[in-house]
Computed example of a mutant assay.
Amino acid sequence: MDGPPRRPAAMTEPSPPPAALRQQQWRALGLLCGLGLGLAPVAPDVCAALRTLVGADAAALFWLDAQGMPAGFFHEDSPAAVQDLFLNEFERLFSGPGETNVHTLARADGPRAGRLRRLGTPYLRSNSHNLLVRASGHRHTLDLRVEGSGRTHAVAMLFRASGAGFTAADEATLERTGGWLARAFGPPPGAAAELPGMASGPPGHVVLDAAGRPLYADEAATELLRQAHLAGLGLQSAASVPPPDLARRLGVAQPGSQARSAVPGGWLAVHRRDLQALSGGPVQELLTLQLQRPLEVAVVRRVLALPLSPLQGDIAALAGLGHARADCHRLAGVSEAALKKHLRAIFAATGADDWETLADQLRR
């Protein structure tokens, strides 16, 4: 499957991206966030766009639960030990007096962007800075609160390892992205056919005892849990084991239940069911885990890779996302004559000869 852009080596002197690259990143934000999937499934691509637009060494996204606490995250380059600390020790190490953490940044009682840039010495002395930011090799941080529908849904952060700190212009650029990021938590425009999720990789399995506690997790399950970056499930070190309340944390506290959690790149699907016990053996249950990647994200990546104008890319995306050709007049704001002209260019770039073929090509 197509992957997100790779993070470049750390920059010594940040510089504005060329105009064409900047326009491409704004297009990426618009298309990806416009899918309405939330930020977790599109986090790798969105972080790459934010980092490039502002000029940073790395980016991170933290999505929040209804209480404003971090539910999961994606960080482009934080070490495994730092990830474990954040996921498993958040309340003990990073929520005390003097700590400015993701939860406090989510509160609507200060500027939407750049709060960490203004804090100075108190923040530099905090656990949040020293055990998370500095431990990841970064010196400067720029933050953004992502709001929508009366609440904060996420916090975005950009990092620089050295050199000059973030400027007011950088802050303004990041704040401008907030409107696009908020779209990720709203409904996509127009109605389209629902695209199936794409299973990625082998399923993982966890055996539970009669009390619902993990007895055994295979390598695939351990890797899925490690990559999920869900609160309370930091399994980055070799000695880490799933917590006793793993089933509850994954939303399958009851036998026979199924659940899905937003994770970087998609959703972690979990199914809990009985295992057939051997004669006289103990009662056990099985958790089956699998990563589901949204096909919509693959469609957008393929559209962005085509040599098309922004409007032509929007039209092509409508095909790949399951819209009818007639929807282009309303959703892309083009007349029939203009649509025919743009479709000729799209078909030439893709080799498709009609709307249906174009849709099929973008979904492969």
Rank of each mutant, 00 (worst) to 15 (best):
H75D: 11
H75N: 06
H75I: 00
E76N: 02
E76R: 02
D77N: 14
D77T: 14
S78A: 15
P79N: 10
P79D: 07
V82F: 03
Q83R: 14
Q83M: 08
D84H: 14
D84Q: 12
D84M: 09
L85R: 15
F86L: 15
F86D: 07
F86W: 14
N88A: 13
E89R: 15
F90C: 02
F90V: 00
R92M: 10
R92Y: 05
F94I: 04
F94N: 01
F94V: 02
F94H: 07
S95I: 01
S95A: 15
S95K: 11
G96K: 09
P97D: 10
P97T: 10
G98F: 08
G98R: 10
T100S: 13
T100R: 13
N101Q: 09
N101Y: 10
H103S: 14
T104F: 06
L105Q: 05
A106S: 15
R107D: 10
G110L: 05
G110F: 07
R112I: 04
R115C: 01
R115W: 05
R117K: 12
R118V: 08
R118C: 10
R118L: 14
L119F: 08
G120Y: 06
T121C: 01
T121G: 02
P122M: 04
P122I: 05
L124H: 05
L124C: 00
R125A: 08
S126C: 01
N127M: 00
S128M: 08
H129M: 09
N130T: 13
N130M: 03
L131Q: 12
L132P: 03
R134A: 15
R134N: 01
G137K: 06
G137Y: 09
G137F: 04
H138Y: 15
R139D: 03
R139S: 09
R139Q: 14
H140K: 04
T141Y: 00
L144Y: 04
L144R: 04
R145K: 06
R145G: 07
V146T: 09
E147A: 06
E147F: 01
G148I: 08
S149M: 12
S149E: 15
G150D: 04
R151Y: 05
T152V: 08
T152G: 05
T152R: 02
A154Q: 04
A154P: 04
A154K: 07
L158Q: 02
F159K: 00
F159H: 15
R160E: 02
R160W: 01
A161T: 13
G163H: 03
G165K: 02
G165I: 01
F166T: 10
F166A: 09
T167V: 09
A168L: 13
A169W: 10
A169N: 08
D170N: 13
E171R: 13
A172L: 11
T173Q: 13
T173N: 01
L174N: 01
E175M: 07
E175D: 14
G178D: 03
G179D: 07
W180T: 00
L181R: 06
L181A: 07
A182I: 04
A184F: 12
F185I: 10
F185W: 15
P188I: 13
P188R: 14
G190A: 12
G190M: 09
A191N: 07
A192D: 00
L195S: 09
P196E: 12
P196G: 09
A199N: 04
A199L: 12
G201C: 12
G201T: 09
G201K: 11
P202G: 11
H205N: 02
V206G: 07
V206F: 06
V206A: 06
V206N: 07
